[in-house]
Design a protein around this nucleic acid. Structure first.
Lengths: 193, 193
DNA sequence: CCTACCGATCGGTAGG
DNA sequence: CCTACCGATCGGTAGG
């Protein structure tokens, strides 16, 4: 069997796992569920993966890598603080439109990670929040963002962005563009001085 | 054994379950985990509960009952739409301060409900959203809330409120009062015309 | 990639 | 409220 097929098979397993983990949760999804969706026996999957946990790890860190890439680009830009926040909102909407189920799993199932993975993921989350808080702090000091508790502003933004995930799962009444526009209007106005 | 003791024992099981379900998730919590925390054998719990699922049902519907009670009071008041939204925010902060772990479980684990419970809980969620949307719609028509997509406003609010739960679990840097004040400032300003 | 199968753990019951 | 124990299911391995 060629290497390429093996890589694709692995990708297929991860993709199907992401769909099932989102739908039923990590613990409630059995390796047999995944295998059935991929079209092989559960035992056969272990030629492509090391463990069920490894699948979850792959999904979670793939998502965090992606968000960090976007954040780094925004940080390195010469945008003003409030424009950076706006760019972050856009980045979240975009990522969710493209990779909804991965983001969903990372958001809801990361607690099921084990040992070092769990510790590392927690650190990753903290770092993301810290770097976003720094942007908000800049805005506060520049006088363009309200002088409120930075953590409350931060989590108010992050939670609204997290919700978008549910939007794209359950309903699709409006387009991503309209969603983005409305959301920026609400969130930016909410924190602008 | 008196009825009173039996009721208290049941409450104890539900309380400990809520703590464990929040921490590890419903599926990842075994009846033996719960029993250990309560201080009895797993088999003994079945004198007080019917099944592990029944515990989850009790928690979820207790929370939704509570939220509906608050919402009904607010609807029946003669507050203006924007003041009603503000009252809802206060109600959420209050409930989370008092019953954080129950709310947390209802928010994150309701998907593990089965059959009729799952269907009923979904309907309950939808109704809550519908009634909150009606208040927002009133505000839009009165010209006090921005004429944006009502669903986006609704979920932007709800997701920010949902996040408070994490706040009270992980960190407690600021007091509930300051949190409430900051949050109302951000959210109300975000949607006000 | 499959068959066969493992040890562990699960939710729950019987009987006292 | 406990001991003893059940059938089912789990993640994963051995060997081909």
């Amino acid at each position: 069997m060629s290497n390429k097929t093996k890589v694709n098979r692995r990708e297929e397993i991860i993709e199907m796992s992401a769909l099932l983990f989102r739908e039923k949760g990590f613990k409630a999804t059995s390796t047999r569920d995944i295998a059935e969706k991929v079209g092989m026996e559960a035992a056969s999957m272990y030629n492509h993966i090391q463990s069920k946990h490894e699948i979850l790890e792959t999904i979670c860190f793939r998502v965090s890598d992606r968000y960090f890439l976007e954040l780094s680009n925004i940080e390195d830009s010469d945008l003003l603080p409030l424009q950076k926040v706006q760019a972050i909102i856009r980045a979240h909407v975009k990522t969710l439109t493209l990779d909804g189920c991965y983001v969903s799993v990372a958001n809801n199932e990361w607690r099921q990670l084990k040992d070092n993975s769990l510790i590392k993921f927690r650190e990753t989350k903290r770092e993301y929040e810290k770097r976003m808080a720094a942007i908000i702090q800049e805005g506060v000091e520049a006088g363009t963002i309200k002088r409120l508790n930075v953590s409350v502003i931060l989590f108010s933004l992050l939670s609204s962005l997290r919700w978008i995930e549910y939007w794209f799962n359950d309903r699709r009444e409006i387009s991503p563009d309209v969603l983005e526009e409305n959301l920026i209007n609400i969130l930016i106005n909410g924190i602008s001085e």
